[in-house]
Design a protein around this nucleic acid. Structure first.
Lengths: 194, 194, 194, 194
DNA sequence: AATGAATGAGAGTTCATTCAT
DNA sequence: TATGAATGAACTCTCATTCAT
């Protein structure tokens, strides 16, 4: 029962992801999503409160999955630099492997309503706090500088990776995103200094 | 003649900036901008092709002014680390001093159409190339690592600063953005390493 | 068999009355009535042709009951003025004692479709004919004026009482409706004349 | 200027009256009213806040005109029975001469939303208060019984006439409404008594 | 007999853009 | 140049009804 309900729920979310990725946020009409999912327009509203609810659910689920990946991949026993590498690796790899998701999260959903962007903010916050935790561990482990402002640095780290992904998408995915992990991590750890 | 035309042109752009900052992108109707500018709706179309053209012009002009600031502030003779500091300082200070502009560029205009975002991309690209130039100089001057991937690193640097500004806005501007310059630059130069 | 069928039939009608009284005609969705009756949406359609059929049945049954009351209360041997008093008394008392029914008949069902209002008209007609009969008897008994236009007067009598009930409901039932019987009947019989 | 604006305002109101009278309240779509008025759908919203606003304006204006008729026709010097006759005469005659208006006020607008019905109530109240004033004068003049409950009686008088008009409409306007004035007034004044 | 998930037609409203003045 | 009244396409959501189980 519950699984059957969830099945159609996911069916609609997947359809929404595809439609937004292909047509852009502003051309993702409910009727188009319904058609892509193979259900009637009204059926959408049996599973979602309104259009915004679809988008919020989409973001929460897909990005929640992503954040889940981080949590399950990074062990407490990892050294902070290993953890940092894993974070960057998962971040780049996952989005490279799910281009639709990447487009939707990096480009399309950013055009959305205030309410949606607030929800997005909440999910992103979880991720940013994961980065912060990693930074704190690095300081405790003596691997990272003790005078780091972790609240600021977590933004610098997240913002860097986020910009790299967006730029890769906009430029047309002409190179491997995953191949940028090493250099990105090296920048974080070593900085620019000769 | 031409200057009179430019006067009203600017009048409309300033009105657009104010209206978007106050009401958000999705509530910035042409009629509202016209009212704020003190002209009739139709007059807008004597100076701009369509609504998108207003926004593109707005971004080009305001952000162009900003990029101009960078070019005039940074001298060829600056050492790369001095240049990097200036870049970050101007970036943070200018946006802290122009909150309307900050909101519009960081939050509101990102909800816009593909065409606008492409235009934004062009202006931002100029800035990113300035960062790249600074990085190259640093390498030549032996201040920055020779093995830097400048195409990647320029994104890491820009993305970091961009995220810090956005986060500062969303969080409600509860602290000084300019006060983050030192730690930001130190992160870029020293990295995380203990 | 038949009684079992009627049981659920009535169950649904009672649910409809309650739902309309509580939520108003425009918020009395079939699904809400089904829920109140404790049956599935589809079950409704085993007992009623469509939504309008529920409402028509509701009105016919409930108002039919009311009209039945009149017929059983008024004896052939009553003098016309006694009969008139009984009619008014039952009219006011029954609706005062069944506020839900009063709201539904006086306020909510009047917003309904043409077809329903025609059906309502038929039931009301029976009542109006009862009033007419009473008037004829009064004339025969020499109690009422011989030159009365009974077709017109029955409307004047019904319309008066109907308006009093509606006004009492709209004003918030702040006084006793039954207490208006004496003065109403006196108006009918004596008129305004000093 | 103002008159030009009012012209179109009235144009739309007249179109609404016609469309509602011809198609019924529930088939009076905004697009249909616009077409009847010979304007674009959007133009409607330059003159009215929303659909309900059209209907409220319609009722206020048309019924306001009617109530105005009463006030201008009835002189202070009229004896109460003359005034009563005038009220009934205007009531019946005006609606007989404006069948569209009669249909809309007696039948269609009663199916409308709560907000509209509240507005209708306000206009009707003015009329009912006029009836009350006439009754009070009759008592003062010694023409009407001193023991009349004017608050109740005004409803009896209004309800009677209202029902006669509605019945005349529903029955298909097969007889003259104006011809009912004499007998209606006689009923009010003399009552049923032989 | 009973269920309830699925259907899909239908309508009010906004707002960028035009064009007669 | 400037106006601003008029345009009309486009889209979300509701809910009575159906039908496979």
């Amino acid at each position: 029962m519950a699984s059957k309900k969830m099945e159609k729920h996911n069916l609609i979310l997947d359809a929404a992801l595809k439609v937004i990725a292909e047509n852009g946020y502003h051309n993702a009409q409910v009727s188009r999503i319904a058609k892509e999912a193979g259900v009637a327009d009204g059926t959408i509203y049996l599973y979602f409160k309104n259009k915004e609810d679809i988008l919020i659910s989409l973001f929460q689920k897909k990005l929640g999955d992503l954040v889940g990946q981080f949590h399950s991949s990074i062990k407490e026993t990892d050294s902070a630099d290993e953890a940092l590498r894993k974070i960057c690796e998962i971040h780049y790899t996952m989005l490279e492997q799910n281009v639709d998701l990447a487009f939707v999260t990096q480009i399309e959903l950013r055009q959305s309503s205030l309410a949606l962007r607030k929800e997005i903010g909440l999910v992103v916050k979880t991720y940013i706090e994961l980065i912060e935790k990693m930074l704190r561990q690095g300081i405790e482990q003596g691997i990272f500088r003790a005078n780091l402002d972790v609240k600021l640095t977590r933004l610098l780290v997240f913002g860097s990776m986020d910009e790299v992904v967006t730029s890769w998408l906009i430029a047309g995915r002409k190179y491997s995103l995953t191949a940028q992990v090493d250099k990105t991590v090296e920048f974080f750890i070593q900085g620019l200094k000769a």
